[in-house]
Design a protein around this nucleic acid. Structure first.
Length: 198
DNA sequence: GGTGTGATCGTA
DNA sequence: ACGATCACACCA
């Protein structure tokens, strides 16, 4: 039993959505016809204008426009002059809310991922970070705004029946500078999974 | 296992 | 000037 998650799934608070996304599948249908799939094992919640660490904290800009749009779309941003990272947009109630996809367990299309991530020595290094995940899936600014809820779409998040962990790992978020809401424990991960970052 | 550092450029 | 990062060097 497997289903593409509907818009209503994304229409919840970013913190709840983050936990709900654990163990869901990110599935890409590439132009070549090949399918990539991975199970999400690490995420972080960002709560827009109410979160000093969020790109959306100071309101809409050209870059973060997707975060202020409807839930269930992908927000992809460029950072550190060389990396892309991907988020899922959460409900509009707190405008600019989103969930950063930080790590996943590779399930399908590993050969493609290995080619795109030549530095990965082991398969557990393929998707063990937000920029690594984008590299392996070849996600860039072109994918910013992609609707994830379309059953025949190029990118989807799918429920294959595996529930989120009962007791996820809960920690502060990674890479947040001091004072910028660095104390909020909005990072969630699947306990014991070897693909979790760091 | 852990820590420290350079790369590289769009954004505000 | 500063990142929602990564890889590599080095130490343990």
């Amino acid at each position: 039993m497997t289903r593409t998650l509907p818009r209503s799934f994304y229409a919840q608070d970013a913190r709840d959505l983050a936990v709900a996304l654990l163990n869901k599948l990110l599935v890409a249908r590439e132009p070549t016809g090949r399918t990539l799939a991975a199970r999400l094992v690490e995420v972080e919640a960002y709560r827009g204008g109410e979160d000093a660490a969020s790109h959306a904290y100071r309101g809409p800009t050209r870059r973060n426009a997707t975060m202020f749009g409807p839930p269930g779309h992908l927000y992809v941003y460029f950072t550190y002059g060389m990396h892309w990272c991907a988020n899922v947009v959460a409900r509009e109630e707190v405008p600019g809310s989103a969930v950063l996809l930080r790590a996943a367990a590779p399930l399908d299309g590993l050969e493609v991922m290995r080619v795109r991530r030549p530095r990965a020595r082991r398969d557990r290094d393929l998707l063990s970070g937000p920029a690594k995940l984008c590299q392996a899936f070849a996600l860039t600014g072109e994918h910013d705004g992609t609707d994830l809820t379309l059953a025949r779409g190029p990118l989807r998040i799918v429920d294959d029946g595996v529930p989120p962990p009962r007791s996820p790992v809960v920690t502060t978020r990674v890479g947040i500078s001091p004072g910028r809401a660095d104390d909020l424990e909005w990072r969630f991960a699947v306990p014991g999974d070897p693909n979790v970052s760091r």
